[in-house]
Write a protein that binds this DNA or RNA. Sequence first.
DNA 1: TCTATATCTAGTCATTGTCAAGATAGGAGC
DNA 2: GCTCCTATCTTGACAATGACTAGATATAGA
Lengths: 200, 200
Amino acid sequence: MAARKQSKTYHHGDLREALVLAAIALLEEKGLASFTLRECARRAGVSHAAPAHHFATAADLLAELAARGFERFVAALGKAADETEGTAMARLAAMGQAYVAFALANPPVYGLMFRGGANPLQSPRLKTAATAAWQQLNNAVAAVLGPKRQDEVTAKAAAVWALVHGTATLMLDCKLPPGPARSSDPVAQILSSLPGLLRP
Amino acid sequence: MAARKQSKTYHHGDLREALVLAAIALLEEKGLASFTLRECARRAGVSHAAPAHHFATAADLLAELAARGFERFVAALGKAADETEGTAMARLAAMGQAYVAFALANPPVYGLMFRGGANPLQSPRLKTAATAAWQQLNNAVAAVLGPKRQDEVTAKAAAVWALVHGTATLMLDCKLPPGPARSSDPVAQILSSLPGLLRP
DNA sequence: TCTATATCTAGTCATTGTCAAGATAGGAGC
DNA sequence: GCTCCTATCTTGACAATGACTAGATATAGA
């Protein structure tokens, strides 16, 4: 990425976007522990205090990354569902695979999305995207279960979410037990239990 | 906690233990983001460079906390299994409840234990404890399934682990979907799907 | 008693996030 | 074209942190 657009003008032109791109690259290169506002500024070719005019604090920039990540996440789940023909169960399984695949393909961003902890990186965009993701999953589960009471559907959908999310985080943290970890496709092995989860 | 044991001696006496205790308290008060080696030193009543003789780096102290946490975790799972009478399924369910309960009772420590990420806080003690936890769970699942092929047992056990771990992390990160989150006991609601997970 | 070693203090350095003050650019109104 | 206002950016400063070094002090073993 070029430090500036062209000539060394005093104003950057689109610093906000440049900072976001630099932040994504930095995050994927060095991880969250080495993430630094000043390094983002350096990569964008501006002084260390310039980002303050676009992101009041480092957490705000990270929140922006999390929101964008969640929007890509929702799109990936939707694409997996749309592109899968066959039974409702097949569609749900495809979404589960897409879920874990997204996490494994974007470890630091996935961490930002879900690991806000007690002090979550909140933003309206993020909340909207999170709700959309949940709705997608809930609908897919409802399609599998057929006509049921609403609270039963949400309970089952929560279990599906937990199973898939747990698989993703265990894989990311290399905490998958030895046996399954050595398997050729540990994700598929775990997710093969998905249908059982939905039986009464 | 007293800064020193008694009189202001040059040597602390048991600085290593004092640092660990200070670190646990600090972690639970302020969270990982505000965790600082210098603050641990202050709380232990020593200079900022003193910890270096016991923990080469801040990560080493955190690794110690993670290892101790994992050992308590294993003990909690074992206790839940031992104290539960009845079917093998009942014991497994009790372990699942204990698993999530531990996570919710010790959020920062649980985070340390599992969120090492790409650069895990490794130590022999931690590995040993993690393996022991996995063995406990694996045995409990094997008891439920009865005589089966070993790889089938480990696959199911991994699914159980993922479901329980996913439940814990979603709860911790307040990422549980609205419906289940409003339930009186969301954990029990999700874990009620556990038996289905183990049916063929 | 004497000495080697472990433990602790004080000081230093580069780095970071945040703040304040001043320089520059671009646009709105005239 | 001109003025002025505001957003944007730079420079400089501050306190805090992790890590390193050198030196002081205590403890244990010969």
